[in-house]
Design a protein around this nucleic acid. Structure first.
Lengths: 102, 102
DNA sequence: CGGAATCCAAGAAGATACTG
DNA sequence: CAGTATCTTCTTGGATTCCG
């Protein structure tokens, strides 16, 4: 893992394209890169692996490699990642309310 | 205000450079553009006004103009913005813990 | 002072090809 | 299947200038 302050988390792990959708899919149980690529609309394999790598570096997701042929890899949320997802939902809720009853 | 889903909030109001620092300064009571420009290290006036405009559009901050000479303007957090700040602090806390005791 | 417009440099993302 | 590397394109941010 890495880093100093929250800013990093928002800028690198939440604020870039596809990230929220990607995290939601992982949270929903989609664990393998191939599936994630198909699950997140518009995201290419290249961008996906950049995102996953970054999420691992920041301690948001965890990677497990199975030494098989063909290779199999799975990504799951860490406990920090899970809390992050709860917070995303919370912001979603707040934002929704703010739009309706401002 | 505007927008569809949370993704927008993270991408446009939290995930870009200076945003978290800017919001924290506003939360700390720095309300005028000139002061904010000086308070947030490295941020230029141009970027500042882009950010403020965006925050207003997304209902995170509120703008008040006083018709004086010279003109005076103030920005404050909306209730949604205040909740957002609390959430930023929460993520800060979580992230800090995750680094120490993973 | 606050803010918009312009121009330019730096970074993010799309498309493809290639390795283990 | 997963992941890296390269190349091109688009978006973001930095520096400067002008207007109300």
């Amino acid at each position: 893992m890495s880093e100093q302050d929250v800013t990093e988390v928002f800028e690198k792990c939440l604020g870039c394209r596809y990230m929220v959708a990607l995290l939601q899919k992982i949270h929903d149980g989609v664990r393998r890169p191939g599936q994630l690529e198909r699950a997140v609309d518009g995201m290419t394999a290249k961008v996906l692996s950049e995102r996953l790598k970054r999420l691992v570096e920041h301690g948001v997701v965890e990677k497990t490699s199975y030494p098989e042929i063909p290779p199999r890899v799975e990504y799951t949320l860490t406990s920090f990642g899970q809390r992050l997802l709860e917070i995303i939902d919370e912001v979603d809720e707040l934002h929704r309310r703010a739009r309706i009853k401002p």
